[in-house]
Computed example of a mutant assay.
Amino acid sequence: MNSLFRRLLVINGLIFAVGTTVLALSPATVSSPVLLTELPVLTVGLALMVTANAFLLRASLAPLDGLTTLMERFDSLRSGDRLQISGNGDLSHLIRTFNAMLDRLEADRSASTARVLAAQEAERQRIARELHDEIGQSLTVVLLQLKRVVDRVPDDLTEDMRAVRESVRSCLDEVRGVARRLRPGVLEDLGLLSALSALVSEFDHVEGLELDRSLEAPPDLDPDTELVIYRIAQESLTNVARHSRAGHACLSLSREPGLIVLEVTDDGCGPPSTDGTGILGMRERALLIGARLSITGGPAGGTRVRLAVPIGGERGAAAG
């Protein structure tokens, strides 16, 4: 700020020096007391000095407007938004420092989010194991015991016992389904394409919803990136099933230059006006891998979720 102070001091000094020089060298004179005929000269001179001062100060302080605009629109979940540093700006140091602060904030948030999501995934895996190994095994034992009981009960109780056995079997299927959603073993074992296909199949049972898929084989991706893509697809389809009131939806995975693009579109009621917990979680996951997530209206109505994941060193392009 010392540089800005010195520049403002120099600007004002120069203006008054020029004004004094012009007054001294011009034929105009000022009497004491001031004559009415001299007032126009003084008024014009003052107006010129104020105008010149305003113009120069405006040019010097213009970067502050951009800085204020950036502060108002900045969102740490939409990374890469920075203010350009002008070549001759006296505020360039301030802008550079502010951009560096945003870099630190985004890095800190990314690190914090990574720790939280890692802990969340670990907890999901623990719960999935307990559901599968403890509750699932217990329900399996109950099914076996019911099978033996059904064979020995009186005929008038046979149908009731079979209904109980089917209820337990349905509970076991639900437990296994929850465990799969918590820990997508197919993602670890068979890869992203198989995991997305299985995910679409899980939503085929939603009444009134026709769900299509278009999946292109991606290049080799690290496990964290695959997990982010899978979780965002999972959350997007869950939102379609619960909130969109859509009759048709499509999940696609495709390749573009430097990008892997996941899209989930539907013909429902359109995107939400505010980001809920699920969407905020999607944005945080996208930020972890330098991807860009957009949630907009579809070309024919409904909602379009688009995740652009950079590959081949194009991370900055997707995140910017």
Rank of each mutant, 00 (worst) to 15 (best):
R169G: 07
D173W: 09
D173V: 13
E174L: 08
A179P: 13
R181S: 12
R181N: 14
D189P: 11
L192N: 09
L193I: 14
S197E: 09
A198L: 08
A198N: 08
A198D: 11
A198S: 12
L199Y: 09
V200D: 10
E202D: 13
D204L: 12
H205N: 09
E210N: 04
R213E: 12
S214E: 08
D220Q: 08
D222V: 14
T225G: 00
T225N: 06
E226S: 08
Q234M: 07
E235D: 14
S236E: 02
N239V: 06
N239R: 10
V240K: 06
A241Y: 05
H243W: 11
A246Q: 07
H248P: 01
C250I: 12
C250W: 12
C250F: 12
R255T: 15
R255F: 14
E256C: 06
I260A: 07
I260Y: 07
V261D: 01
V261K: 13
E263V: 14
V264H: 01
T265R: 00
D266C: 02
D267T: 00
D267C: 00
G268T: 01
P272Y: 10
S273A: 09
T274R: 15
G276N: 08
G278Q: 02
G278L: 06
R283D: 03
R283G: 00
E284R: 01
A286E: 01
L288T: 04
L293A: 05
S294K: 04
I295H: 02
P299N: 13
T303C: 01
L307M: 10
A308R: 11
V309N: 07
V309G: 10
V309C: 13
